[in-house]
Each structure stands twice: as structure tokens, then as C-alpha cells.
Simulated assay, not measured.
Amino acid sequence: MEEHLVSIITPSFNSEKFISETIKSVQNQTYKNWEMIIVDDGSVDKTISIVESHLHDKRIQLHQQKQNYGTGIARNKAVSLAKGRYIAFLDSDDLWKPEKLQKQIKFMVSENQPFTFSFYECMDENGNALGKIIEAPKILTYHQLFWSNLIGNLTGIYDSAFLGKITISSIRKRQDWMMWLTILKKTKTAKPVPENLAIYRIRENSISASKTALLRHNYNVYRNFHKLNVIVSIGCMIGFLFVHFFIKPKYVKKRKLK
């Protein structure tokens, strides 16, 4: 299989505790033709110096923003700089398993899929395994994705030769969900690689750990991205909560890690 260039999009902000491990998980990939574009979003800790210590690997790039604009803006900047056919996403505190790129690109080619994602497992802020794998529907539809973001950002890869470069402007949070929605509006469905290929770090100050913040940002997706009025957006949030608690567990499995 020809190894097309994969551009890895990594926004960073005050990630000194984690980013070296994240970079090493990319360097350990069995698929070698990649570029890692790190856009730092105004870090005030040692993130920059840590990334600079890895720049002897010419596949790694560092671009600095003068102030904190938000993760979405940093991702957009990285996408604009990407030269690869495939665009992949990895935040600065998450990890990839060594065969992640190789298996996922092979799946995309063999299954003729311009966009894929995968299952993943979870760890806590200190890197301790939480003993569960997050699975996803075997076939994901736009309708399912409208009601809940069922794709782990650290697992998504799309083919820019088919979809072009996708950016979501002026959005600080939940930009990944809006990107997947944009893709599925065109492809209608998507299939995941049915394997656990990545490790998601749950941090105490993350959106996923703060239910209130998650609800607020999800409301903004309905209100500002879908351009729905206030009443309809509130109705969608009620639907979101129903799906999250009653429907989602039926097709998004959380099974114990062996």
C-alpha cells in the first residue's frame, strides 16, 4: 500500500505534563509518512520548550499563536498548513497506539471510505487506565451524529482529496463535532475501524469532565452552527439529553478493557 502523507493536527495549550508522551506516540507509529503540525494556543508553561526539544524530527512542526484563541481556531490554523492527503486529529494530551495510522489508512483504502474513526480506551489525568473501551455504531449516520457526538476526536481521519480541507470558523469549542457533521452531510454515513486504536485522557478541567460546560457548548452547536432559533435549540438540547441517557447506551458500548 502506498503511504500517502498524513497531516496530524495537534492544538496545544499548557500541555507540559502530557505533550512529550503524545509526540512519542506519533513517532512510534508503524506508518512513517506523516507530518505533525502543533499549533500552540498561547501556552504560558513549558509546552513550547518541550515541543522544541522534539524538533530534531523534521516531521514535527511548531507554530505559535500570540494569545489564546481557543482549540478550534488552533485546529483551523493547523489544517490550513497541512500538506497531507489525509488529515488526522490528536490533541496534546491523548495517545495513539503504534498501529493506529497503518490500520486506519488501510481500512480507508480497502473500504473506500473518505472518513473514518475508531474505538478508543480511556485513562485518567495521571495516565492510569480506566479499564473501558468506547465503541461506536458500525454504521454512523448524520441523524445519529446530529443528536450526539459519537466520534472521539483523537480517532478521526478524513481524505482531503475527496472532501477538501475542512475548517469551522470562529468556534472555540466542539469544533470537532461540527467538522464531523459537515463531513457526514456529504458522505451520509461513515464506518469506524472496529478496533481500539487510541487512548483518551480524561482531565479534571476538560469539557467532557464538566457536564455544565458540555451542555453549554452543545447548545451553541445547535444555535450557532445549525442556525436554529432559541426555542428549537432548546428543544434539540432536550433531545440531546434524551439520546445521551436513553438511546446512546444502546449503540455506543462501554466495555471493560481486557
Rank of each mutant, 00 (worst) to 15 (best):
L81G: 10
E21F: 03
S170Q: 13
I19S: 00
S160R: 12
Y86P: 02
Q113H: 03
L184C: 04
Q113I: 07
G84D: 09
S53F: 05
I231M: 05
I207L: 15
Y158A: 11
L257R: 14
Y69S: 04
M108Y: 14
V79H: 14
K106F: 02
W96M: 09
K256S: 13
V109I: 07
S92Q: 00
T71Y: 01
T22S: 00
K186P: 15
E204G: 00
D124S: 13
H63S: 13
N28V: 09
I19V: 12
I8W: 02
K173E: 14
A74V: 02
D41H: 10
T10V: 07
S43C: 08
G235P: 02
E16M: 14
L5S: 12
I157S: 08
K138D: 07
S110R: 10
H4W: 11
K83V: 06
A161F: 13
P114R: 03
Y219W: 01
E2V: 14
N224R: 06
D93F: 01
Y142H: 07
G70R: 00
N126F: 10
G131H: 10
V6A: 09
I38N: 07
Q27L: 09
P98V: 09
P11D: 05
T22G: 08
P192F: 04
Q27S: 12
T155F: 08
L228I: 03
F119D: 09
V230D: 04
S43Y: 04
E121L: 11
L228F: 09
L163W: 07
D45H: 09
K46T: 02
E121M: 10
C236I: 07
E195Y: 00
H217Y: 13
E52P: 01
I133C: 10
T167N: 10
L215C: 01
I50T: 11
G152E: 11
M36H: 13
I133P: 13
M1I: 03
A88Q: 07
T182F: 04
K186T: 13
H63F: 11
Y200V: 00
S208R: 08
N128A: 08
R201V: 03
I183A: 14
G235W: 05
M108A: 15
I166T: 04
S92W: 00
K253F: 06
T141Q: 02
V193C: 12
H143G: 14
A209C: 10
Q27F: 03
K17M: 02
F89K: 01
S169N: 06
G152F: 14
D94S: 07
S12D: 02
F13L: 15
R255S: 11
T47N: 05
N153E: 08
D41N: 15
V193G: 06
P192R: 05
A88P: 01
K191W: 04
Y251H: 11
K24C: 13
Q104F: 05
S25A: 12
N28H: 01
E35L: 01
E195G: 00
P114I: 09
P249V: 15
G164V: 09
L95C: 06
S208N: 09
W147Q: 05
I202H: 05
I73N: 11
A82H: 04
L90V: 11
A78K: 09
K138P: 02
Q104M: 12
R75A: 08
I50D: 03
I37P: 07
N153Q: 10
L241P: 01
N218S: 12
E204P: 00
M108F: 11
Q175L: 10
M179G: 13
Q102C: 03
K83Y: 06
K188L: 12
C122F: 00
Q64H: 11
I133W: 08
I168C: 06
